Simulated scan of single mutants.
Amino acid sequence: MRRDGQVLVFDADDTLWENNVLFERVIENYLTWVQHPTLDRLQLRAVLNEVQAANAITHGYGSRMLVRSLGDCVEKLRGRPATGQELAEIEELAAALIDHRVELIPDVAETLAALAGRHTLLMLTKGNPEEQRRKIDASRLAHHFKAVSIVEEKDSETYRRFLAEHELAPETSWMIGNSPKSDILPARQVGMNAVFIPNDHTWVLEHTELDPSDGAVLHLRAFRELLDHF
């Protein structure tokens, strides 16, 4: 049964367009490049995950944080700061990520166009403001949204501020995204409904368990399935 007159709040990265798969390609090339006499790829990735988790707190998200983390990981693995040559090679590894065009997830443009005629659409995304704005502009989706908010973090306090800023009623508002940690759980903590659309390439640091008995979370397999419910 379709719900009419709802407020649909969309995540951006890995919900509207592919993002983390691009990061993963850079990381896979980096793991081949960095090498180590005793650590295998899984162990190297675990070290990098720790570095990224720490840097996300102090430096936010996005491609520049990843580049910083790749350099910091070299220092942690080799017990010395990365050399100028190593940093230049890291920049080269990440160049494709920084310059990559936005790749929309299948059916996103058509689905948003249909939903915009029946509902109020908003966007709530986290990351580096300049980088996120560039991706939003490149996506050519901005005209579907009444407002776009770019934030440093998406936690329950962010959602409380967002609801207040836009004068939204939680019971008719839905957060739609691929991240249990940033999209689903904090939205539910402030009384919003949520739609979980998994992405096989969701960043490992965004993973967490969802309560399968929570009836206010709609689980879909693909973006176009939103049209069956809204």
Rank of each mutant, 00 (worst) to 15 (best):
M1N: 09
R3V: 11
D4M: 10
G5I: 09
G5W: 06
V9I: 12
D11Y: 00
D11W: 02
T15G: 01
E18L: 08
E18R: 09
N20S: 14
F23W: 12
E24Q: 15
E24S: 10
E24V: 10
E24R: 15
N29T: 05
Y30A: 02
Y30V: 04
L31W: 02
T38H: 13
L42W: 15
L44G: 05
R45S: 09
L48E: 08
L48G: 06
N49I: 13
V51C: 06
Q52I: 13
A54D: 13
N55L: 12
A56W: 09
A56Q: 13
H59M: 07
G62Y: 07
R64T: 14
R68P: 03
S69A: 15
L70E: 02
E75Q: 15
K76D: 02
P81R: 13
L87R: 15
A88R: 14
E89R: 08
E89C: 06
I90S: 01
I90V: 11
I90H: 04
A95R: 09
L97I: 07
R101S: 13
I105T: 04
P106H: 06
P106M: 08
D107Y: 12
E110Y: 07
L112S: 04
L112G: 01
A114H: 14
A116S: 11
G117Y: 01
H119A: 03
T120W: 00
L121W: 00
L124G: 05
G127E: 03
N128K: 08
E130V: 15
R133A: 11
K135V: 03
I136V: 15
R140H: 14
R140I: 00
R140S: 14
R140G: 09
H143W: 12
H143E: 15
F145R: 00
S149T: 15
E152K: 14
K154C: 05
K154S: 04
D155Q: 06
S156W: 09
S156Q: 15
T158V: 00
Y159W: 03
L163W: 11
A164K: 14
A164Y: 06
E167P: 01
P170W: 03
E171V: 04
S173D: 03
W174H: 01
S179F: 01
D183C: 05
D183Q: 00
Q189I: 05
Q189C: 07
Q189K: 13
M192W: 11
N193F: 01
I197R: 08
N199R: 04
N199K: 02
W203E: 09
L205P: 04
L205W: 05
L205C: 00
E206N: 14
E209P: 00
L210I: 11
L210M: 10
A216F: 02
A216M: 02
V217E: 00
L218S: 04
A222K: 15
L226R: 03
